[in-house]
Design a binder for these strands. Structure first.
Lengths: 221, 221
DNA sequence: TTTTAAATGTTGCATTTGCAACATTTTGCA
DNA sequence: TGCAAAATGTTGCAAATGCAACATTTAAAA
């Protein structure tokens, strides 16, 4: 995926960081960065570390909204912070560059190509995030646990063109991502195993069926 | 919401349309525009009319992915077209300007301010769409019909700062949007009415409770 | 290493929900 | 205006699923 400063040399990157309103945060593992954030419309760029944007609703359900690794970008305006249910947690010691979004957009002076490049990068990243969101919506509109799992497998499998899927998180978090009860998910995974649809070894899932929906031939690697 | 050509005068808009690879489509009500689209990475701009991006999955469930009105913008790359489940339907006679996305991004020559403005507009629009997707994800991660409805009401109510909600679509489509069975939804709406939570008159829903989640005081208008 | 916490596995059960199969009402169109 | 189609309302029932309450395994931290 495109990175925020792709195609911009260090000197120009420095210039941009001076033009924009920025702030650099250093946070310890397992702490929230919310209290250090001022303003609700910030672009965050993870210099190093690993963040999770999670949501705890009033029913006690946790959902992982985004996972943000090294050099990845997030946008706090996408969250409805005022609802008080979101949190951004550092899962490792992390450094984060925060840029005020308005100061990016309202800049009129410079028509330098590196500024244009920056805006284009931000656009590319935002589109890519939109695709991920669409994928999750595709999954969540499925009504049964089985169909959510199969849709998830299908998308993951198509991405890498392989019948092997390596889960990017543990099963507890997978259940959160699919918005289903973890125990019920385990039950259904067992069914899928027993019916010969899948094989599970740790975080590697092997798809044993040829295709899931009508249109998706699985490539056999 | 920002429009694609906001802040760009007609002369410069024309210049842009010449620089980019564009195509103008005219489609009749209730026809698909997919067959007229060539390329899978297009920015669509509705000159006039009204479109719906829908998805029919293999289980026969329909989902409305996006509603695109006059002067609104959509991005075909956000859809996984190869899965053959998506369609873009004109719900009215419509005219659509299609712009090849690559031809937008790869343009290097012009550093004109109207080009920058265009990219910024596209960024703003993409971010706004991302917010809408997040809202839907928030709703779809709720596990019960009741909680999905209440979350939907809460978001709609907060948007306008009012306890009155005017549904932007009919109840059948609302059920699709919430990814629940229409009959079950009707049943639950009846329950909510009988328990005194809401009042329904046509497409206007009145919230009779003060707040839904812990953090959201409803403004009383 | 030991201890503590987190993740995973399992199962019974009450509840919710999707589904089917209708009746009724509203809307759009010829 | 009248007719067909779409939208809405209703209900019984089987199936799916969330939940609680555990045991067991694995991972992290002290």
């Amino acid at each position: 995926m495109v990175k925020l400063f792709d195609g911009i040399n260090p000197r120009n990157r420095e210039k941009l960081e001076k033009i924009f309103e920025t702030q650099t945060l250093h946070v310890k593992k397992n702490t929230s960065i919310l209290k250090s954030i001022h303003g609700d419309n910030l672009i965050g760029y993870v210099l190093n570390g690993y963040l999770e944007i999670i949501k705890n609703d009033s029913n006690g359900n946790k959902t992982i909204f985004e996972e943000i690794y090294d050099e990845d970008t997030f946008n706090t305006s996408l969250l409805t912070f005022n609802r008080g249910e979101y949190d951004i947690l550092a899962k490792e010691d992390s450094s984060i560059l925060l840029i005020d979004y308005e100061s990016i957009i309202e800049e009129k002076e410079i028509t330098k190509d590196y500024y244009l490049q920056f805006i284009k990068n931000l656009l590319e990243i935002t589109i890519a995030k939109g695709k991920e969101k669409n994928e999750r919506i595709e999954i969540l509109t499925k009504k049964t646990i089985r169909n959510r799992l199969l849709e998830y497998f299908s998308i993951a499998s198509n991405k890498h063109g392989s019948k092997f899927i390596y889960l990017p998180f543990n099963f507890t978090d997978l259940a959160d991502y699919l918005a289903i009860d973890r125990c019920a998910m385990t039950r259904e995974l067992k069914n899928l195993k027993e019916e010969g649809f899948i094989e599970i070894k740790g975080k590697r899932i092997t798809l044993l069926y040829e295709k899931y929906s009508s249109s998706d031939p699985l490539i056999n690697i």
